[in-house]
């Protein structure tokens, strides 16, 4: 049993510290995976972040044949957060020189790790998401799961343990809220 599945079992057992343990593990795994994958890609090629997450899932969880959606939900929540951090990290690095004493790691190769819509500023979106989470954390989480972890609406609904209808409502509201926020209209 991998560390991740062990932690996922801890969720089953109601261990509240499980998510604290899960995030760093998933984060490390994603970074490792990204480095490996990007190393094999031609420079200039953009690797889809969400595909990376799913690959990580199969590597870490899927092979254990543990198909409980509860566990997946926890995993993808952690993965979405990890991926967000990685993307922000990359975006910040692309933007310019880092301040001295910055702890950010620079071990990712100079390849793109991106999202489908290149028009979106990942940092701005991430900030807007934080804002949204302040007043509607469920909707924010839904966006994260879809945007960073690549879940479909139905999968995200299951992960969040809400109905599809609720998820649809949340989604429609959240995406327009985010757009309004990015356009400084709210």
């Amino acid at each position: 049993m991998s560390d991740i599945t062990r932690i996922l079992h801890q969720f089953e057992l109601g261990d509240p510290t499980a998510s604290d343990q899960l995030l760093p593990l998933v984060y490390e795994e994603l970074r490792l995976l990204a480095r490996q994958r990007l190393a094999n890609e031609k420079p200039g090629q953009t690797l889809q972040a969400t595909a990376l997450v799913h690959e990580a899932y199969l590597r870490l969880v899927g092979k254990e044949n543990d198909a409980s959606w509860d566990n997946r939900g926890h995993f993808f929540a952690a993965a979405a957060e990890a991926m967000r951090r990685i993307l922000i990290e990359l975006a910040r690095r692309k933007r310019g020189p880092r301040a001295g004493g910055d702890h950010q790691r620079v071990d990712l190769p100079e390849h793109e790790l991106g999202i489908m819509d290149s028009r979106l500023d990942i940092v701005e979106l991430s900030d807007a998401l934080d804002e949204l989470a302040q007043q509607d954390s469920r909707a924010a989480e839904l966006v994260k799961l879809r945007f960073f972890a690549g879940l479909t609406l139905a999968q995200a609904a299951q992960a969040l343990e809400v109905s599809l209808t609720t998820a649809k409502t949340d989604w429609k509201y959240a995406k327009n809220w985010l757009r309004a926020s990015l356009h400084r209209q709210l």
Binding site: H54, L58, D117, F147, G150, L151, Q155, N176
Partner: peptide, 15 residues
């Protein structure tokens, strides 16, 4: 907005 970059089809074959 966001729809294209968010997943409507799973990237991976779950269900």
């Amino acid at each position: 907005f966001l729809e294209d970059s968010a997943q409507t089809q799973p990237t991976l074959d779950f269900d």
